[in-house]
Design a protein around this nucleic acid. Sequence first.
RNA 1: GCCCCCGUAGCUCAGUGGAUAGAGCAAUUGUUUCCUAAACAAUAGGUCGCAGGUUCGAUCCCUGCCGGGGGUACCA
Length: 608
Amino acid sequence: MRNAERHRLACGRRANIISHMNLLNSIQDRFRAALKDLVPDAGPYVAMVKPTQDTKHGDYQANCAMALAKTLGKKPREIAQDIVARLDLGDLLEAPEIAGPGFINLRLQTAHIAGALQTISPDDRLGVTKTMTPRTYVIDYSSPNVAKPLHVGHLRSTIIGDALTRLLRFLGHTVITDNHLGDWGTQFGILLYGYKNLLDQEAYAKEPVRELARIYIEVRRLIGADEDEAKNPIAEACRAETAKLHHGDVENNRLWKEFMPHCLAEIHEVYEKLGILPYDHEHGESFYNPLLPGVVESLLESKVAEPGDAGAIIIRFNENNVALVRKRDGAFTYTTSDLATIQYRLEHFHPQAILYVVDFRQSQHFANLFEAARRWGVTGVELSHISFGSVLGKEGKPISTRKGDGTELIDLINQAVELGLQKYRESYDDRKAQGHEVPDLTDADQRAIAEAVGIGAIKYADLSQNRTSDYKFDYDKMLATEGNTATYMQYAYARNRSIFRKAGIDAETLRTDPPTVTLETPHERALALQLLRFEEALLSAVAEYQPSAITAYLWDLAKTFSGFFQNCPVIRAESEPLRKSRLLLCDLTARVLQRCLDLLGIKTVERM
RNA sequence: GCCCCCGUAGCUCAGUGGAUAGAGCAAUUGUUUCCUAAACAAUAGGUCGCAGGUUCGAUCCCUGCCGGGGGUACCA
């Protein structure tokens, strides 16, 4: 699947006018041509051309000679010689070096890098081409239970889903975002019980969202610890309210309709604060509820499902792996609802892929769900569980989601923003103390910096982690100014922008009429090359649905820029052409930094 | 019991069938008459959990074991 997608992308790019901007692809194309007469299927060997891990081996390397030794019956170094002899270097590559057992080390011609940079400068997309094979994706992420405050457990799904949406759209795909709200569950029984027994009418009239949150927490508190719930009389009463809701009780359904907008408003407020793109759809469980009897009927009819114990209906995958689609009390389950959702999405959105950004603990559920869907006749659509690890406390233990311990998402966000503001003020004081001239920013500007830094820190810490591993939620680490953090990227951007302010240059002029680029120092060359690798990074991020590929690229770019900034004076460059060339490097760096951060849902600020 | 994930530097984590396994923090040290020091640079730090196997080549793929986490028909 992934290879097929890569292949389609590659073919699409070849057809594109500015396809030569993708360095890796250009080099691979040349290897494809060189290998054509040596081996019947060059594909796998072309894939062995990749960026070097160590810059002392050049910019790119080809490892195919060793792999070909057996099939061709020759020594790897000889094969490397053959390949190199057939390789059209053009104005792209320096003469390759053959090293070690048969590595082909490739170095790009610096003039080519400089030319390519000048070419992409006017391009809004910074040299990244739109895919020639756009797909329609449905992405299902965040999906909280409404009527409960969002907590830390919702963080990853929300921001990973948001980042993937931005990335896929930027690459030219159609993305339909759908928030599969848990809006029909037992939490409404709690709310209904609370409404009927604990409501402060006046408070409800004035601030319904807050009052509903209060009674929710109050009822949870009265129920007490989870383990007592089965025999707890209040919990029992709540369950009864839920059952009445589900069985069509008029009063409870009226109240449900009354609560919903308030519950949604509360969730949307957090999304807005976090900077999450607005959803295209928010079809929750209640939306699919009327479809469920028909789904079960269809499952039975097509023999996907079968009767289980005591009137339950099940789908059997193997001896000890079974999914329930109707409970013995007649109620449906999330499997039923998820199958109804797939059916609905196929019918209404016609996607080529449906992605579920949901934590790893549900991987068996999704494996079963996808298998059930296939048996049910769903074909020709990628169904992927974009799984992720847990957010752990600083001590490495899962953060408890029990109420009242400060794990509500909104509190975490506010805390990070507060710390961001502190950081700004410390830095301001330090710089003053060092005798620097520091502008006095308005409270509003400081606030904007604090939000960009604080919220950026949370998001970046999450997205820079390999999706599948757990990570520790640690303010000190995520707000650090050194290392791979949002702050470091934002700082690189702000320093960069400062150059243009000081120089009094409108960056736009560099884009409409890009100056000649000269890359004399290793710092300039490294920065330029890194800028040209933007598309490579995005394609590798999308291939694995892995936002951390973008952050890894950002980290390299920002570090390379910092080295350049330290060593290559821009405003005081030795000559006017060099100054222009460096300004262009800066402008492109700022734009790529900003674009990358934007794809992650992170804001930049002009100064900090 | 069965299934899934993880184990890499003191700490937090990257990483890939390829060359001497990388970052950041912490430690030691240097750099500011400043295009923002929220920075740059240098030194030191490793049995990639253990044992086999496949391979020209394994931290990566396969098998077993040890350790940790998660899931396992009526919550999603």
